[in-house]
Write a protein that binds this DNA or RNA. Structure first.
Lengths: 136, 136, 136, 136
DNA sequence: GTGGTCTAGACCACA
DNA sequence: GTGGTCTAGACCACG
């Protein structure tokens, strides 16, 4: 899980996002328990309140559910939901970015070119492994 | 200028963004004065301090400059700078969105499809006039 | 930190300057937290908004960074940056002063003499301790 | 006279400075009248209030004096005073710059080097004529 | 009239 | 507790 305290996106969202990815990747199967708030907090060396907020968000999204006295468990449809919500988030992000670009008066060609560049950069990163940042 | 107080991005940034767009679109030419802080504040019904903060940011970015006792004036290279910074912002947004999508395990096909959808939605909105917000 | 409300240079810049000096002097090490806005405001008996503005400037200059809910922390390269910017400021000041002197028709000898005097005055002040203000 | 409305130093000071230089250079002799506020304002295309403030400052410094109903005239000791005040201004500027540099923790060597650089740059500019800005 | 600084006090999100 | 944004209203220098 990639946590960066200097990142402007809130810590609890970074955590929720990390777990969402883990679910989409199948790291936790439906019915599995996820680490308790206290355990997670200790492991990540982060304030338990922050973990709590991350779990709350996941629960609202239906990815995990609490069973009284037992802890939080992965929902049956969690992996699909995780993928779906990731896709939805991507759509939202793209739509927002394009709307802003259009409002700024950028031409469709410029927008497509920017996407192609970002896309190529992503492929390069994938080929070179996740640790690489720039093309060599 | 589209100002939404419910939007999580700060008001003063929304204002700066709006003027940046106006500059990119050529609404104010180099050497032109932009509306005075007080006038803008009255028109947008927003506190002058907030306008001041927006203008401050534009001045730091070299888009406008202040002449004491006279007002704020558009810099000579303002429109180019505004376009360039808009393009840069788009690239950043796209790269961030794609990185997140990849981290979430989405397939390249899904990503491209999402972009195509967002792109089509943008074109549709353009054809139907700038007032349309939702899919037609 | 030397704050003079009668000084024409804005308070928030004086504050930022003071912290810049402290960073250059190594008073705060990279990774250290700097005093919270509210604490600093209370200590200096100055409005928190003014402190906030000073910190904002330091953050823009890359000397400190904020972590939400935790405070502002010294950047890794802060001390070097602080020194570099101080040196740059000195060069600018000297160049501006010399340009003005030349424009006023002063002779090179007069300029050098003035610098020697200012330099000697500085040495004397250093020998006599930082509290001395006037010529001994 | 070099007037720059984008310059952060107030226009009226730039004007006063320009006249001070003219006096030091002997462009106006003691007893000569200087251009009336209205004439000066029209020639420089500047608000008469601004000229008025510049003349006020020169009068306070004893460089010019008003004779009722006649206008403003150059004082007998004006050229010497102009030179002296320029020298004094230089001393002040240098002392202030050095004090700031010392407060920032710069070493004496660094300060002397910075002065030598500024001095060399000045000489180069002088050799190349007043219009040149950078060494070729 | 203009921009710029400062204070006071409020509310918010985050850890 | 932290930083960040916004409002309200004051005062200043400048043209």
């Amino acid at each position: 899980m990639n946590l960066d305290p200097a990142n402007p996106t809130p810590l609890f969202q970074q955590i929720a996002e990390g777990i969402r990815h883990a679910l989409a990747a199948g790291a936790y199967l439906p019915g599995d328990p996820i680490p308790s708030i206290r355990a997670q907090a200790q492991k990540l060396r982060i304030n338990p309140n922050t973990i709590q907020r991350a779990y709350e968000q996941l629960e609202r999204d239906g990815l995990i559910e609490s069973r009284k006295g037992l802890g939080m468990f992965v929902t049956s449809r969690a992996d699909d939901s995780a993928r779906a919500s990731s896709l939805e988030a991507l759509r939202d992000d793209l739509a927002r970015a394009l709307r802003a670009a259009r409002a700024a008066g950028l031409l469709p060609d410029q927008i497509d070119t920017a996407y192609a560049q970002a896309r190529a950069q992503l492929d390069a990163a994938r080929r070179n492994g996740p640790a690489r940042k720039e093309h060599p």
